[in-house]
Nucleic acid binder design. Structure first.
Lengths: 345, 345
DNA sequence: CTGAAAGCGCTAACAA
DNA sequence: TTGTTAGCGCTTTCAG
């Protein structure tokens, strides 16, 4: 591997000159003559010189890298967030290093590993409260800013980027009542999922606001992905006599919506003619399925971008410690084929 | 940030002792006494010391990091590969740094950026031939091994990990003929997609082997994700009189399969009763849709794992340069609800 | 405008 | 068993 000194020697200048040139740094006015600059650049290219970012980082004490910690690497959502983060990093000339938190118990080690890379900041996706607390603690002593994305964790003292659930579920509820629905069931995710519970809570509020009765027997918890659980919860609802049957299913996630659609069909119901079904998140497959899902789109890539902007800002200030805020990024309603007015009533 | 020297001073030992302890390196036999070792460790923990991996990397000239270059960060498949890569990296105590190749034109700069991080190796996912060639060239002069994952690129001189398409499409064809299908249509992806064309080629071969006529009028190219294009290609096929209509649709991808199912329904056909539809890849949503997709599963996470094993092996040997091989990882057939024997014939 | 020299935090012989 | 010393490749004053 060819080094800066090699280039200097070859070009017959000192290392500092080369350093200045390759970083094209202008220390007070124009420091290095166009002639030498050109020569140095030429030699560098000739020799195939690639600056060693690591050495630079140790010399400056600044590493243009952001840590990205998530618990479940595979989740589509985490990936979209990462895409956004990466986009923003690219324009800021930063890099991302992902860390996989396979088990909450190793959170502490993981953060130290991350810190060991002397990251300028940390972006954390969807960590459980306890793991987040650990991350926050370790990061604070190292004075590295962290911002959390996507999972609402109200009493964590860091800045959090989350999609606006208040707005999102209201948007969808509004859409449904606008279409004339009166009996809307809420098909939630797991009982221990904070995002599901949040959506459920807001759903109740929204129902009240829209003057709908909230019927507890139409509010169920299920699972993000297990067909049997969803089916077991949804089928009974749909098997009710038509006058007690929900005319719409507000599902807490797109996968749940798809499983619900399937269940509805098994119950002999057509979607959306007999029952409307809505999703949440606008997953990649939401437009592919039949019927295409009406859903609320969360802009994960934007969330990722915002996250790095914030973490970079914190890193720039030195008062990166105590700041704590929640920024909510707006969602949007995407109406497709799975909702329809219950005009058969 | 507290350093190794700080610890040394505090513990009243030399830096090298601390270095040995924290890396728990045993130079010939037991070098540092349990007593001092314990003390150093204690002090280090007390002071909250975190080793600076960057400094270590520049000192040793070895960086335990792998570059991960992909063209489309969002693709679910790339993500699964990355999950596998990360799993394997974790056990080897390596880290991953992802690089986003937004445009083939910047391939050269991107690789240099990657090389600038002094990565020990590069994993490349699904790059077009020209971009790959550039990567290979830059990497070779830097003597950094690269392995390619997923996209078959026969004449590239690097080792490639790919899923066994020969086996995969034959598996599916076998399933279909076993169920009695005789008129199978091939619904491909874009005409310029190498994986789609590869599957098409093998599909033809497989048909021959199974004694089926291959009917060129039942082999079409479409798009990976655009509903209109797929519909335009599939609808005419399905509109044919029953004796000329395909009884099964071999789709080159899961999304295409879903769009085909939808099209079939619009044509008044039931899936799988009237027409069977198969996917390829086993995307996350393949089991969610209705009917759940029969598809061939590609083990992307395994591919990712294999990739890092290979790149690490190459990095260990110094003859990392010229090696070139294709390792095919087996696929598996997952039969779900979208296929059925054409017993109505 | 350019060079010499002193680090950055850590490792790795080699002495002691 | 431990300390001394000389780097790794780069940046950054400060003189020349």
């Amino acid at each position: 591997m060819i080094t800066l000194d090699d280039v200097a020697k070859q070009a017959g200048v000192s290392t500092s000159t080369v350093s200045i040139v390759v970083n094209n740094r202008h220390v007070r006015g124009v420091s290095v003559s166009p002639a030498t600059r050109e020569r140095v650049l030429h030699v560098a290219r000739e020799m195939g010189y690639t600056p060693n970012s690591l050495a630079r980082a140790v010399a400056t004490g600044k590493n243009r890298v952001l840590g990205f910690i998530k618990d479940d690497l595979a989740a589509e959502l985490a990936m979209r967030i990462m895409v956004g983060a990466q986009q923003e990093c690219e324009i800021a000339d930063y890099l991302i290093k992902p860390f996989q938190l396979s088990h909450p118990a190793i959170a502490s080690d993981l953060v130290r590993k991350c810190l060991g890379q002397r990251v300028a900041g940390i972006i954390v996706v969807n960590l459980p409260d306890d793991a987040l607390a650990i991350v926050l603690h370790e990061a604070k002593t190292a004075e590295v800013p962290v911002v959390m994305v996507d999972s609402p964790s109200p009493n964590a003292s860091c800045i959090q980027i989350t999609s606006d659930a208040e707005q999102g579920v209201r948007l969808m509820c509004g859409h449904l009542v606008e279409q004339g629905h009166k009996r809307i069931a809420f098909i939630g995710g797991p009982a221990d999922s904070v995002v599901s519970q949040e959506r459920k809570r807001i759903f109740r509020d929204a129902c009240l606001e829209y003057g709908l009765d909230i019927r507890e027997d139409m509010i169920v918890d299920t699972s993000w992905g297990e067909t049997d659980i969803v089916k077991a919860a949804v089928a009974p609802l749909l098997a009710r006599p038509v006058e007690h049957r929900p005319t719409a299913l507000f599902c807490a996630g797109d996968a749940i919506a798809m499983m619900s659609v399937k269940t509805a069909r098994r119950c002999g119901l057509r979607v959306p003619k007999d029952v409307s079904v809505t999703g949440y998140s606008n997953a990649s497959y939401a437009y592919l399925c039949d019927p295409a899902l009406t859903t609320v789109a969360q802009d994960f890539v934007e969330m990722g971008r915002i996250a790095v902007r914030h973490v970079l800002a914190l890193a720039a200030d030195k008062d990166c410690a105590a700041k704590s805020a929640i920024v909510k990024v707006p969602t949007s309603l995407v109406v497709r084929e799975s909702t329809w007015g219950p005009d058969w009533v």
